[in-house]
């Protein structure tokens, strides 16, 4: 009987572990829960800057997670929640920056560099061919 109780306690403890990392929240639907998870992974914690809201244990991250939860349950759209955060903490909180003139290089710089690389590559190959052709 005592061993059964001990086994029961252990089983309960193992199930409890994943629940310790974040607050216990209830959602009215699984869709809302998925939206919550996606949002807190996309939003950057303003305090500990290399973590998202999901990872951070800082006080402000806890508050902001709570805010996201409330807004989702109040039927706010993802865009409204993101706008709410940006209005208070700036575009800084977005791990996926907005497309604008300031972020143009960030988004398209790699493709521009790739284009320059390809262009140079073709130019060099063509020049080498010409040289070889002249030699032959």
């Amino acid at each position: 009987m005592i061993t059964a109780r001990i086994v029961f306690c252990w089983v309960v403890l193992f199930f409890a572990l994943p629940g310790i990392a974040q607050e216990l929240l209830t959602f009215s639907s699984t869709l809302n829960q998925t939206r919550y998870q996606n949002l807190i992974e996309e939003l950057r914690c303003p305090k500990c800057q290399n973590q998202n809201l999901a990872d951070s244990a800082s006080g402000i991250a806890v508050d902001l997670r709570e805010q996201v939860h409330q807004m989702i349950e109040a039927n706010k759209s993802d865009q409204e929640i993101v706008d709410y955060m940006v209005a208070r903490y700036g575009e800084f909180v977005l791990y996926r920056p907005i497309h604008s003139s300031a972020t143009f290089l960030l988004w398209y710089g790699p493709f521009i560099l790739l284009g320059i690389g390809l262009f140079t590559f073709v130019l060099v190959v063509m020049a080498n061919r010409k040289k070889r052709g002249a030699k032959l």
């Binding site: 303003p46 305090k47 006080g59 402000i60 508050d63 902001l64 805010q67 208070r88 903490y89 700036g90």
Partner: peptide, 12 residues
């Protein structure tokens, strides 16, 4: 509860 803090965009 820190609501005004969030409205002001504070981090701590």
């Amino acid at each position: 509860i820190g609501h005004f803090g969030v409205d002001m965009g504070i981090t701590g």
